[in-house]
Amino acid sequence: MNIFRLSGDLSHLLAILLLLVKIWKTRSCAGISGKSQILFAIVYTTRYLDLFTSFVSVYNSFMKVVFLTASYGTLYLMFFKFKPTYDHNHDSFRILYLIIPSLVLSFIIVHVYTVMEILWTYSIYLEAVAIMPQLFMVSRTGEAETITSHYLFALGSYRALYILNWIYRYYTEDFLDMIVIIAGIVQTILYCDFFYLYITKVLKGKRLSLP
């Protein structure tokens, strides 16, 4: 554990809780992509199956359970409790275009051919692109609520902080996992455009709207 990893995890946790609280408080999931949320649920499920097979620390297990619970909780709010507020007309990204190629890639580029390892690798590849339906939705509607912008910023920062963590671990522990590093860089790059808008608009008190 180092400061970059911890900050990344807390940023990730903040993002997930921010989204849950936003939906709960406003009794609405308008502007949130249900498809991205489905992809994140798949990501957490396939990655954290190791809850049953390997124990790292109480911290790790606790966070995994929180991420899984919050993710399914979000899906429940979006597709059941507040379903009428879900803006499915603007959530039109075809997620099979992300699900299938990630799956194929996880069979081609993987460290070890075991079911758990392939599922873990799949979760890494899918996570890298899981935000695309949400970013697509923002670009289609041309705007995002400020709280949604904070959510996206926290979620994007998390992997960027993990990249610093991997650089740190490379020098201090000789730890190097190219699969997770390349996917993490791709994931962070996808947010760059949004980061720019967030810094130039949202942080200056303006609403995020596209020109």
Binding site: S57, H111, N165
Partner: peptide, 10 residues
């Protein structure tokens, strides 16, 4: 190098 199958991150 640590084996890649040591998954200690989230």
């Amino acid at each position: 190098l640590k084996p890649s199958y040591v998954k200690d991150e989230l």
